[in-house]
């Protein structure tokens, strides 16, 4: 098991319990989509799993080692986090920003090596931002910024990749492209978890869907087992129409459409 969370709890000041006793395993080669209504604790769960937040209770471990016992640089080499957005946009070119993903690999006193630059170039090509290398980060679009953030996480070469709503500001073509990329990265042996509100992208690409409600996991199963009225409607409090469409690799996958009345 690459990443394992046990009895994970997180309280924000208030107090507000955002994550309440979550057990989650993320295996190498798996693409898990984490879904749930706003405020369900999805982003908090991802941040706990990559060490950005300290749990109020429980523990996260990477390959059996507690996350708290792993030094920050080592942690960054093993688990990468892609945020929804940045608190501030640095005044640097895109390639320079992506190079920040190599921080965990750089030795102190040493500059980036040609190897680091090659990793950055590959990561930028994989995320389809190779042509943006010299452009100031402040001058890329919202969708391009999402891809740049994924490129930087790829440059970390971590075995676990945790992605927080990567497609919220992307057009349909790039939504599909990002999920195809995440699927391919999982296929290469990484453990990938992605928080998303897009149930149909989750259905098409994820091997497992984890449903979070009020900080607790209420379902964790294949898309066929999760995208059903008895699971979704109590969680979202909304009505859906359900159908099936041919999948890329053969067979069918479920799709859902929110539908009032």
């Amino acid at each position: 098991m690459t990443l394992a969370a046990r009895a994970l709890v997180h309280d924000y000041p208030g107090p507000l319990r955002a994550v309440d006793g979550v057990d989650l395993d993320l295996a190498a080669g798996e693409l898990a989509a984490i879904i749930g209504p706003n405020g369900a604790g999805k982003s908090t769960l991802l941040k706990l799993c990559c060490g950005l937040l300290a749990p109020s209770g429980g523990e996260v471990s990477l390959d059996g080692t507690p996350l708290g016992a792993i030094a920050p640089r080592e942690r960054a080499r093993r688990v990468a986090f892609v945020p929804q957005s940045l608190a501030a946009v640095p005044e640097v070119a895109v390639a320079h920003f992506v190079l920040g993903g190599r921080y965990g690999h750089l030795r102190r006193w040493s500059r980036s090596t040609p190897g680091d630059l090659a990793v950055v170039a590959d990561a930028m090509a994989a995320a389809d931002v190779a042509e943006l290398g010299e452009r100031p980060l402040a001058r890329v679009s919202g969708g391009q910024l999402q891809r740049v953030l994924i490129a930087r996480a790829l440059a970390q070469q971590a075995s676990s990749l945790l992605v927080d709503e990567p497609t919220s500001s992307l057009d349909p073509e790039h939504q599909l492209a990002i999920f195809a990329l995440l699927e391919r990265l999982a296929g290469e042996g990484r453990a990938v978890a992605v928080v998303t509100h897009d149930l149909n992208l989750a259905s098409q690409f994820a091997s497992r869907i984890v449903v979070l409600q009020d900080g607790c996991i209420v379902a964790s199963a294949t898309p066929d087992e999760v995208l059903r009225a008895e699971v979704l409607e109590p969680v979202y409090g909304a009505h859906f129409r359900y159908g099936r469409l041919p999948a890329r690799g053969g067979g069918e996958r479920p799709f859902v459409l929110p539908w009032s009345g």
Partner: peptide
């Protein structure tokens, strides 16, 4: 979406605003 390739042009480490 293009595939990763080591033939892709390497960014300059010092690349910054003009």
């Amino acid at each position: 979406m293009s595939l990763p390739s080591s033939q892709a042009p390497a960014p300059r480490a010092g690349a910054a605003l003009p």
